[in-house]
Nucleic acid binder design. Structure first.
Length: 348
DNA sequence: AACACGGGGGA
DNA sequence: TCCCCAGTGTT
């Protein structure tokens, strides 16, 4: 069987939309069928879902919309409140940009309605601009996320370099967006990628568009997309310090940019490529209570967790927080606090 | 074009 | 383990 030419793909649009009408997922940020989507909820959900799974983002979406029901309410929130509410969701630059964006939007009286203008806002890149324009404003723009890239890679059985394939997919997707239902087309592609055209063992038996799929025709859809091999992840070592004073713990706020930027944290040593001598923030009777391991995107961290009772030292910048409520710590420090016997937010 | 940037879940 | 996820911003 011959792979379909790009032109043949046009037929997949009505087939996909028909399938979507029958089996769309119900999600917290989706409006009822036929009801206009709220730009604020579309935007907030799209930011939260960047590189983040639906089950992980969903409770955060509920909490944010309950606490800040409008973009104006979010714009008026204090930075620390928002960073604390985002804790555990990861990629904290998203939270910093979320606030910047909310304040810009609030100041200009609402979200811009075109892909081009949306692209100028902080935290909104090519994918998110297209998604918001299509979902909230009905513009004929594509929303090519990781799901859509995988679906198209299989439809086309892309052989070229993955970067080149993604460029080609972007153009093809843009041409296919139906003028009548751009938002539904975007959600349909996402639902198909998430539930049917999955990375491993895709359920081609449930797929409404196998007729258009070159990878299916080849019999090995799981071989696509063809991506470059990942490089190994190095390990870094360091120590985190839990300084106690009665029922309090000493916390710091990390610098506004970089890893975990702007987040609440335990004081810690530099993170080196080899185990190095302990480097506590103050002199005290430090004892180790064990090690926590945490995996970041581009390195793994082994953190020795040190505990001590405070004496009367001059402390560096920071403040005392109640040990029974350490909500708002990023996961790596929540793990460390937990190991030290403190009640930090910890899933699992 | 390559890298920095979290965290969790599935196979 | 390894891979992936509704990616963006910086260099």
């Amino acid at each position: 069987m011959q792979p379909k030419s790009d032109r043949d793909l046009a037929g997949m649009v009505p087939a996909l939309l028909g399938w979507f009408d029958r089996s769309a997922r119900t999600l917290p940020w989706r409006s009822a069928r036929g009801v206009a989507r709220d730009p604020y909820r579309v935007w907030l959900s799209e930011i939260m879902l960047q590189q983040t799974t639906v089950p992980h983002a969903a409770p955060y979406f509920e909490a944010f919309t309950r606490r800040w029901p409008t973009v104006e309410a979010l714009a008026a929130a204090a930075d620390e409140e928002v960073m604390q509410a985002w804790a555990g969701l990861g990629y904290y630059a998203r939270a910093r940009n979320l606030l910047k964006c909310a304040r810009e939007v609030s100041a200009r009286g609402g979200f811009p309605v075109t892909e081009k203008e949306l692209l100028t806002l902080p935290g909104i890149g090519p994918y998110t601009a297209g998604a918001i324009a299509a979902l909230a404003f009905g513009e004929r723009t594509p929303a090519v996320d990781g799901n859509a890239e995988r679906v198209f890679s299989r439809l086309l059985a892309t052989q070229e370099d993955w970067a080149a394939a993604k460029r080609r997919i972007g153009h093809i997707a843009r041409d296919l967006v139906p003028a009548s239902r751009p938002g539904d087309f975007a959600e349909a592609l996402m639902d198909l990628g998430a539930g049917v055209c999955t990375p491993k063992q895709p359920s081609c038996g449930l797929c409404p568009i196998t007729e258009y799929c070159a990878a299916y025709a080849e019999g090995r859809p799981d071989r696509y997309p063809i991506k470059p091999a990942k490089t190994a992840r190095p390990v870094r070592y360091g120590a985190a310090y839990v300084l106690r004073r009665k029922s309090d713990v000493w916390l710091i706020r990390r610098p506004p940019s970089g890893l975990l930027g702007g987040m609440l944290a335990l004081p810690s040593s530099e993170w080196a490529e080899t185990r190095t001598a302990s480097d506590p923030p103050v002199e005290a009777g430090w004892t180790s209570v064990g090690e926590v391991r945490h995996v970041f995107t581009h390195f793994a961290l082994h953190l020795d967790v040190m505990v001590a009772e405070a004496r009367r030292e001059q402390l560096p910048e920071g403040y005392w927080a109640p040990a029974e409520d350490l909500a708002g710590l990023p996961t790596v420090f929540a793990k460390a606090a937990s190991l030290a016997g403190l009640n930090a937010r910890q899933r699992r």
